[in-house]
Design a protein around this nucleic acid. Sequence first.
RNA 1: GGCGCCAUAGCCAAGUGGUAAGGCAAAGGUCUGCAAAACCUUCAUUCCCCGGUUCGAAUCCGGGUGGCGCCUCCA
Length: 487
Amino acid sequence: MAAASIRLFNTMTMQKETLEPAVPGKLGVYVCGPTVYSYVHIGNARTFTSFDVVVRYLRYRGFEVKYVRNYTDVDDKIIKAAHETGEEPVALAARFVEAFREDARALHLLEPDVSPKVSDHLAEIIGIIGKLVDKGLAYESKGDVYFSVRHYPEYAKLSKRNLDDLCAGERVQPGEQKHEPLDFALWKAAKPGEPAWDSPWGKGRPGWHIECSAMSAKYLGETFDIHGGGLDLIFPHHENEIAQSEGASGKTFSRYWMHCGFLDLEGAKMSKSLGNVVRLRDALTKVDPEALRFFFVGTHYRHPLNFADKGLADAEQRMEYFYETLRKVDERVSGKDFGKGPLYGEPHKHLTEFESQMDDDFNTAGALGALSGLFAQMNELTDKPPVKDKAQVGRTLQALREDVRKVSGVLGLFEDEPAQWLLRRRDRAVKERGIDVAKVESLIQARNEARKAKNFAEGDRLREELKGMGVEILDTAAGTVWKVAPQ
RNA sequence: GGCGCCAUAGCCAAGUGGUAAGGCAAAGGUCUGCAAAACCUUCAUUCCCCGGUUCGAAUCCGGGUGGCGCCUCCA
């Protein structure tokens, strides 16, 4: 493979930059994972899918990627949720880690190389806090430990804010022991009924941001290549991570910062406080997982994406087109030997275009344009071959099919057997619409008998009857097949 | 108030200096007993508005208008 030159937008510099790993050929990637106090929603799903594609593409381009995505399983929100359900916080967190794993699998997300949990890394967290205290960047106050923002001049370099503006909106929660409002907690003294661990500052638990500093350093080193997350993590989460990590190590923390745009619901940000949250697992009862992924990658990862039924329906219809094409092509050329010889046209130009779009800041939306060309060409060669040489057509189709496999690995699409995907989709539609399959099949049989007897009037009447049931029939070379008509 | 993003066809959506990708919808055609699918053709002289820079702007600059986000838990 030619030396890849990938450009990506770095939030730190607010510019597209050429990706140059610290160690040639290798990349350390850390993505902020879920705080496991509830089920993930489709906004989370969009972010995780975006970084899933980023990691897949980096590997496709030949980088050896170490992908780390954490679980934050010790947190205020978890404690609060546990008090509401009557569970132990640790048990509740464990339950939602499992739920997340199920959801991630359903969405065809890659398993990260490391998925560390806060509760397994107290030693590392206490270590980094100790280092910050020793350096005078943090202070203990009645069992809490706070980071002293005033002692860290580079604070807010990622979000480009100035401290005076930040102070205006700052407030101190009751019970906090901060010296200054902007300071943030590294360690919180234990309160009754909360998970707690021993530390040099007494029993307590880590603050929100410190776990990412501790765990990324453990698995990727004090300096690593790419740190990702949702746009809303820029401030304060990532800002605080930088302050903690660079404060402790004296080295650059993450070399590139990537942030994914929001998913909106009817034009408004989806958030728990607005109550307009759609859980991923609920969405997946209505839409095919790959169609949802296709919907996500149809918009550039940094742009806002509006979650709308029309868009999902379009995505699913498009997936059907892709899978129908693949089924046809596989039937034609799978496992066959067409010998050696020239291919028709420039079969690989679509893949090349796909790659150049992806090289430009993971422009999946642009890359889908290339994908359209690839599928159109497969259909043309299958249905209306522009050349007579069947072996040449076969070889070219096989080459195109290989290119689809490459794209498939990058986008996490077309991972199913085409026939199975199509059948599963039909089954789901049949259930939703309450279609009587036995009746459909008997009507189709009756129609074929009528057609055989050249009684086309009766055949057409039966077609209309099926249409009334929401069923479309297709007479193919292999016989009559049917599908549920789009609504 | 501070910081930042966005505005491209009926709808979705790429494109950030060289003459508007792609998808959906729509219309016509090929194919078909009729269909469907598939393929082909058509579909923005123009990119929210007004100025400016330039040989050249959707792209850069200034000013508007309209939408959104962060600054508080958030992917």
